[in-house]
Every structure is written in C-alpha cells, then in structure tokens.
Design a protein around this nucleic acid. Structure first.
Lengths: 252, 252
DNA sequence: CTCAAAAGTTAGGTAGGCCTAAGTTTAAGG
DNA sequence: CCTTAAACTTAGGCCTACCTAACTTTTGAG
C-alpha cells in the first residue's frame, strides 16, 4: 500500500463500478462492468489487467474480478465523494434529486478531499445521500441498512422508504411526483396477480405502480417482527434480507 | 460558430492562458504559453495548430497567436467559471484566498453551466472574484477597471487596493497578513531610492514591502485628478493606464 | 551586416483509454 | 459427450496530449 500514484478519472470509475457490482452479485463480470461504464468489453479486460498489476483487484481470466482491500478502499473513497456531492447539490444548491448524479459523477474526480470534507461539514456530516444511499466514512466504513424491495412488501404492511438508485432521472422524477422519497411511509394496499399493478398508499394518495418500479425501490427491512404473512402473489422464498444473490461470475 | 464540439480540459486551459497573455502583452508567444501551462514549447505548437484549424485562434508560424472572437468567447467562459468557483469557495465554503486557485482550476472543467450559475446566484451574482479580478458575464462581457500598480503610486497618495494575481499562494498569505486585500485603502508613505523598500500605510500599520511585491498589486487608477506628481524614484513615462505594453510577439 | 542565441517548428515516440475484429474459453443443452 | 452460443481475451488501431531531439526562423549584439 506504499503510496500508489494518484487515480485518474477512468480508473476511479472502474473501481466504483466493480465495487457496486461486487456488492450486488458477489463478483463483477467483465460484461457487466462494460455495460455499467458504457465501454466495450475489450476495454474492460485491458483496464482490469492494469488495475490487477497495480494491486487494486484480483483477476482470474475468464472467471471475473474482485477488489483487493486496497481497491475497495479506493472505490469507497470515490463513492463517499460522489454521495457527499449529491447531498451538497440538493441540500445547499437546490438541485432536484434527478439531476445530481451526472453532476456529481464529473465533480467527484476533480474535487479535493478538503473540498469534500468542507461540504460534508456544511451539511452536518450526513450519513445518507438524497437517494438514501449510505455515505462511507472518510476511513472507508459503510453501513448498509437491512432492506427488501418494495415489491416484496406483503399486502397490508407499511414500511419506510429507504433508497433508490440515483441513475434513472425519469424514475426519480416520477417518484418525487408520488412523494415516494427516502423516509416516506408507504403501505402495500394491493397487488394484482401475475406481476400486475401494485397499489400503494403514501400519505393521502394511492398511486398505482408497476412491479418493475416497485422492485427498484428499497424499503426498511422491518419496523417489527419476523416475516410470516402468506399473500397471493409470488414472493421470493429467500431467507432474509442479505443481498449477495450470487449470479454467474464466481471468481476463484 | 455552428455547434463546435465540447471543449476538453486541456483545450480550455490553452485558450484561457492565451487570453490572459494576450490581454497583458497584446499577443501570446509560444514559449509564454508553454511556461504558463508548464508544457514543452513543441506541445504548444501542436495544440495551437489544432485550435487554429478549429477556428479558435489565428496562428502565424514563428510570429505568435491571437484568439478569434470565438476563441475569446470560449476563454471568457472558462474564466467566468474559474472566478465564480473561487468566489464560491471563499464566500460559502470558507476557503482561504490562497487556496482557491488550484481547486477552481480543476473544478472549472467539470462543473456544468447550471452549477456555475447556481453558485453565482447563491453569491448574489458577484462582479469580482476574491482577488479582485472581474467576472465576465455569461455572455462574455468583461469590465476591466482602470488601474496602475501599487509600485507606481506616488508618495503621499492613497488608493484603493483593486486586484492581485490568484496564482501565488505565499504572496496571497502575506498580503492577507498585512491586510492588503481588495477594497483596502493603502497609502504610499515612502519609497527608498534605487528600487528600495516601500513603506505603506494600511489601517494603523505601516508594513514595509519590496518593489517586487508592490508591482504585483494593482490599485484603482484615480480617486481624483490627472497624474502630475514628480517624485524621487523612476516611474514609467507611459501615458495612462491602458495595459497592452506590446512586447515581442507581434502576430500579423 | 553577420552570425549566434533564442524562439519556434517538425519529426518521431510514449502512454492512457478507447475501439473493432478475430480468436479462446466456458457453460449449457441436446 | 459434443456442440454451439455467450462471455472473455488478444491483436492491431486510433486519438489526444504530451515528450525529446533535431532543424528552421527570427532577433539582436557586435
């Protein structure tokens, strides 16, 4: 870990994307990274080799990629910068939450640590960004809340909206319209069978949304007890709310 | 002017540097640009050719370079961004004035126009940055104040401090220490002959500074009359306060 | 007016990051 | 087990922006 060279923009983006894929799927596949960064798979292979020789990740050809502690640290630093920037843009400069992602994406590579910490201080050291994503601490600790998706919420139950991806502006605009934002209380009123429309209650309104949308919204895992409640539609038989639903790339 | 491609970071830096050299010397010499950007002269030649073919400047080989209206516009846009960023960093985030330049230098290439305008609005649309440099308007108009250097101020006269370069942190720290900041009233108390030390009065203190420093500080041209006042030291015989002291590169 | 130093340019090369096209390897179905 | 599609990698280029070294032009001192 002896004084690595300063990270360039692209490198930070790769590490960040790999971190995010890894925490969702357990490992990052070349093609997923390529898709996330909108580059050709061949470009990923090349960059991954470079990052592996520099100690940021382990790469087993054809099998996937995983961050080393050092790479994870670098990724979390970038994620912290990104989320503090998003928080600052909405909290201080009045940006709508659907437009902060792109701006933060560019600024996160240019801002100094000093600037980031000044922004964090101005906000009172927030622990989550405007979309509900947790902000890693300066020394790389991140606290994930236990959660499930809104789609999984049993009919009749109420939960607190926790988080949604920052990457889809039109989704975010729509969510703002129906007041489904982090912290909001949302009740599962009804769910039509065969992946049909879902009726929610948020405050006094009862928006009807698609299952696709509901699957993208995370809600707090449990205000109360365990998770017994047989209801109509198909719900995942998975045990609890830990994420790594290992997909294909198995690295190692 | 029909929709040119988005400017990359380096390109913006070249245009900005050329603009600044041009407004100081009337034209920009290759080696001056190279020095300003800390690159080799050969690199400047190459980039200049590219910018010339793209219509941002006119280049007469061996004779210098000059911005086209289009290039000037681009340069002023970058300068506006830079100066608003500097203003915001000091005004809102509490940066000391000697540390804003580097930060702004990086951010100016990453921030969107929207962000810049939000910052300007948050500051009440300032017309000068923390070092006293005028901020061009969004449509590229810049208003230079008439000025002379502090070194030229006749003994006994008082002037308002107008401006100093943002590029020398230790100079800025020293100026802050003696309270010589834009808007401050400064009186020329005495000037030792042969480019000797200069005694000033600022508020209740009488700092003594070198002629080198005094030459870098600009003061408002005239609170009152014309400029008769024979005094000891050598003062430039130039007519008034218009700057372009044409040096070598004569372009055209 | 000459001629060397200074300033500028050309030539050729490096490195980062990307691409397409053409192989390899893996996984999955028959 | 064989075969084929999908995933991945290699090979070979391109472009930007930089460099050094060698050459040309301009300038200014004598």
């Amino acid at each position: 870990m002896h004084a690595r060279p300063a990270l360039t923009g692209p490198v930070e983006d790769y590490l960040k994307a790999i971190y995010e894929l890894e925490s969702r799927f357990g490992a990052a596949a070349t093609s997923d990274v390529a898709h996330a960064l909108d580059v050709a798979p061949a470009s990923v292979t090349g960059m991954v080799r470079r990052l592996a020789t520099q100690g940021y990740l382990d790469h087993v050809p054809y099998r996937g990629v995983q961050l080393t502690p050092c790479g994870r640290q670098a990724a979390l630093r970038t994620i912290r910068r990104h989320r503090i920037l998003e928080s600052y843009l909405t909290g201080v400069l009045g940006y709508p939450w659907d437009r902060v992602h792109d701006e933060a994406e560019r600024l996160e590579h240019a801002a100094s640590d000093d600037l980031i910490e000044r922004m964090a201080a101005a906000l009172g050291h927030p622990t989550a960004d405007p979309h509900g994503a947790p902000i890693p601490t300066a020394d790389g600790l991140i606290e994930e809340q236990p959660h499930r998706t809104l789609a999984e919420l049993p009919v009749g139950e109420t939960a607190r909206m926790l988080r949604v991806s920052d990457k889809n502006p039109s989704l975010l605009r729509y969510l703002a319209e129906i007041a489904l934002q982090p912290g909001a209380e949302v009740t599962m009123v009804a769910r039509a069978p065969f992946d049909g429309p879902i009726t929610l209650r948020i405050g006094n309104s009862e928006p009807v949304v698609g299952p696709n949308l509901a699957a993208q919204v995370l809600v707090a895992a449990m205000p109360s007890s365990g998770l017994r409640s047989a209801d109509a539609s198909g719900s995942l038989p998975s045990t609890a709310a830990s994420k790594p639903k290992s997909r294909k790339p198995t690295a190692r």
